[in-house]
Amino acid sequence: MSGDGTVDRTEGPDDAPPTGPRRILIALYSVFALAATARGIVQISVQFDDAPLAYSLSLFSGIVYICAAIGLLTARSWSRPLAWIACGTELVGVLVIGVASLLDPAAFPHDTVWSRFGSGYGYFPVLLPVLGLMWLRYSAPGRDRDPVD
Rank of each mutant, 00 (worst) to 15 (best):
S2W: 03
T6E: 12
T6P: 02
V7E: 07
D8K: 13
D8M: 06
E11S: 11
E11Y: 13
D15R: 01
D15M: 03
D15I: 05
A16D: 08
A16Q: 12
A16W: 07
P18A: 15
P18M: 06
G20M: 06
G20W: 00
P21V: 08
P21T: 10
L28A: 09
L28Y: 00
S30G: 15
S30I: 03
V31K: 00
V31D: 04
F32R: 04
F32P: 14
F32I: 06
A33V: 10
T37I: 03
A38R: 08
G40I: 01
I41G: 01
Q43L: 11
I44G: 13
F48A: 13
D49L: 10
P52Q: 12
A54G: 15
S56Y: 12
S56Q: 14
S56L: 12
L57M: 15
L59S: 12
S61I: 03
S61R: 08
G62R: 00
I63D: 04
I63W: 10
Y65E: 13
Y65R: 05
I66C: 09
C67R: 02
A68I: 01
A68N: 03
A69P: 14
I70K: 09
L72S: 13
L73R: 13
T74N: 13
A75D: 12
A75Y: 06
R80Q: 10
R80S: 06
P81A: 07
L82D: 05
L82Q: 04
W84T: 01
I85V: 14
I85F: 02
T89R: 04
T89V: 02
E90W: 12
E90K: 04
V92G: 11
L95Q: 05
A100V: 07
S101N: 00
L102A: 10
L103G: 04
D104S: 06
F108Y: 03
P109D: 08
H110G: 00
D111G: 13
D111P: 05
T112H: 02
V113R: 06
W114S: 11
R116Y: 06
R116D: 14
G122N: 02
Y123L: 13
F124N: 08
F124G: 10
F124Y: 07
P125M: 01
L127Q: 12
V130A: 13
L131H: 02
G132T: 00
G132D: 07
L133C: 06
L133D: 09
M134E: 03
M134F: 15
Y138Q: 15
A140H: 09
G142L: 07
G142I: 10
D144F: 09
P147E: 05
P147V: 06
D149A: 04
D149N: 15
